[in-house]
């Protein structure tokens, strides 16, 4: 555990909590892509199956349970409790275009051809693109609430910090995992355009709106 890894995890946790609180406090999930949230729930479910097979640390187990619990709570709020506020018309990204290629890729390129390992690989690949329905939704409506942009910033920052974590681990532990690194780079790059808008607009007190 190094400082990048820890702050990365906390940034990820902050993103998840920010989104849950935003929906809960405003009693609305307007502007939030339910599809991205379903994909994240799928990511956590397929990655953390090792909860049943191996124990790493209390920290590890607790964080996994919190991530999974929050992911399903978010999906529940969007598709059940506050379903009336869900903007399905603008959430029109075709997720099969992500899940099918990612599924194929995880069968083809993995560390070990075993069910748990393939599911882990699937979750890594899927996480790298799971935010696309959300970004697509924002590009479609042309705007995002400021609290939603804070959520996205924390979520992007988390993977960027993991990149530094991997650089650290490579130098000090001689450890690297090519699948996680490549997917992590892809995931971080997808946020770059958003990071630019966040810094130039949101941090200067303006609402994030795209030119028509």
């Amino acid at each position: 555990m190094n400082i990048f890894r820890l702050t990365g995890d906390l940034s990820h946790l902050a993103a998840i909590i920010i989104l849950l609180l935003k929906i809960w406090k405003s009693r609305s999930c307007a502007g939030i892509s339910g599809k991205s949230q379903i994909l994240f729930a799928l990511v956590f479910t397929t990655r953390y199956l090792d909860l049943f097979t191996s124990f790493i640390s209390l920290y590890n187990t607790c964080m996994k349970l919190i991530y999974i619990g929050c992911a399903y709570a978010t999906v529940y709020l969007i598709y059940a409790k506050f379903r009336a506020t869900y903007d399905g018309n603008h959430d029109s990204f075709r997720v099969e275009f992500l899940v099918v290629p990612v599924g194929g890729l995880s069968v083809l390129i993995n560390h070990d051809f075993s069910p748990l390992e393939i599911l882990w690989t699937f979750s890594i690949y899927l996480e790298s693109v799971a935010i696309l329905p959300q970004l697509f939704m924002i590009s479609k409506t042309g705007e995002a609430e400021t609290i939603t942009t804070h959520y996205l910033f924390c979520l992007g920052l988390y993977r960027a910090l993991y990149l530094f974590n991997w650089i650290w681990r490579f130098y000090f532990e001689g450890f690297f995992d090519m699948i996680a690194i490549v997917a992590g780079v892809v995931q971080t790059v997808l946020y770059c355009d958003f990071f630019y808008l966040y810094v130039t607009k949101v941090l200067k007190g303006k609402k994030l709106s795209l030119p028509a």
């Binding site: 890894r5 090792d50 191996s54 964080m63 996994k64 560390h111 532990e173 450890f175 995992d177």
Partner: peptide, 10 residues
């Protein structure tokens, strides 16, 4: 690859 190490990440 050090696969067992990666599982300690989230």
């Amino acid at each position: 690859c050090h696969r067992t190490n990666v599982k300690d990440e989230l």
